[in-house]
Design a binder for these strands. Structure first.
Ligand SMILES: [Zn+2]
Ligand SMILES: [Zn+2]
Ligand SMILES: [Zn+2]
Ligand SMILES: [Zn+2]
Lengths: 188, 188
DNA sequence: CATTTGACGATACAATATAACATATCATCG
DNA sequence: CGATGATATGTTATATTGTATCGTCAAATG
């Protein structure tokens, strides 16, 4: 992550930055990383997409598309459902966010942002988007993304045994997180 | 209740009883098992629920709630969305069917029907509904339910390591099934 | 510059799921 | 039996989630 050379991209980013909502520094930093990630993939994190990802990073919890729409409207007048869904599709395809199917909601993938790549090889030679594993707390609604090699290995092995060629896996684990379990214990 | 010139009320009951759609023998047999299963749980597989489960057993593929509604209407005039969703909720709670989240669709659980129980202990001492693992073929849309001990063990281990107390897991694996992969290979 | 491509605006709609309240059925007991 | 409470179903309306489609614009391509 050395300092990127000053290129035409910088100009775009400046303009985008001035007329765009500013998130807290930590979020803006992650958004900058996302911008870099996108340009390495020859894609563009437009101002709209950046705002959507920013809203998700600011949220402690998974956000539904219409939650996002409501928030986005305060920043971007005239946003409509397709506005949000297009941004979500883009972010999903790059692996910058994940969808939690059981919640019909979305979370940013910190793994991709922090490791600067969202690819994962779960068969030799085949690269594909990583699909994390999600711990969903039914008390506090927080979601934690894991990337557990043991789970992945077990799933790959079971698929293989069934002659199934896996391309994506959805692993969502519901229960009570450590913090909430601790709180319940303290109350009791 | 026994007066020969049947009152409208009696007639309705008779029609309801005799009028119930008959599925092919194999399906009726599974439905009978489901009836037994329910009564052991002190629940009742009513005619409506039985029809819904029957439709699912007859289908080679996962069925959406509105697919079911459409079919059900040919057997049961006046069925509405809540009719189907209530039956689905009942069947889900007993573990007789599963929801495939990625498809917003439902499949019968042959495991529960064949083993006459849908319970599974994934922590010592704790019994809960089993949550299978599903192989979803993107070519033929068929879904295969696994119950792989290795996957379950890996998930339990990872949850535990995170201090998370799991109560349910959703495992959906997308890809190409053995048959479709074979067909593709043959074509190439 | 002409063309193509991708992103976005805007409207309408489809698909999935639930809320709320009325009625019916069934079991149980006085 | 007849009242009573619990469960199941009927019925209407609505909430929530997700797409299709078409038009406009602007940057990229050549
Ligand atoms: Zn991730
Ligand atoms: Zn929690
Ligand atoms: Zn099952
Ligand atoms: Zn297939």
């Amino acid at each position: 992550m050395g300092t990127p050379p000053a290129l035409a991209y910088d100009a775009a980013r400046m303009t985008a930055a001035t007329d765009t909502h500013r998130f807290p520094p930590r979020t803006e930093h992650l958004l900058d990383r996302a911008t870099d990630f996108c340009s390495r993939e020859n894609m563009k994190l437009t101002s709209l997409r950046r705002q959507v990802l920013g809203l998700m990073l600011e949220s402690a919890r998974p956000m539904g598309a219409y939650d996002l729409l409501e928030q986005l409207r305060t920043l971007h007048e005239g946003a409509a459902p397709p506005t949000v869904y297009r941004a979500l599709d883009f972010l999903l395809e790059l692996g910058l966010i994940h969808k939690i199917e059981r919640l019909s909601a979305f979370v940013p993938c910190l793994h991709t942002l922090e490791h600067d790549h969202g690819l994962h090889a779960h068969e030799e030679g085949e690269e594909c988007l990583h699909s994390g594993q999600f711990l969903i707390c039914r008390e506090c609604s927080q979601v934690t993304e894991l990337e557990d090699a043991g789970i992945l290995a077990a799933i790959v092995a079971a698929s293989r045994k069934a002659g199934f060629r896996m391309t994506h896996s959805t692993i969502e684990i519901e229960g009570v997180c450590a913090r909430c379990a601790g709180a319940a214990h303290a109350r009791a």
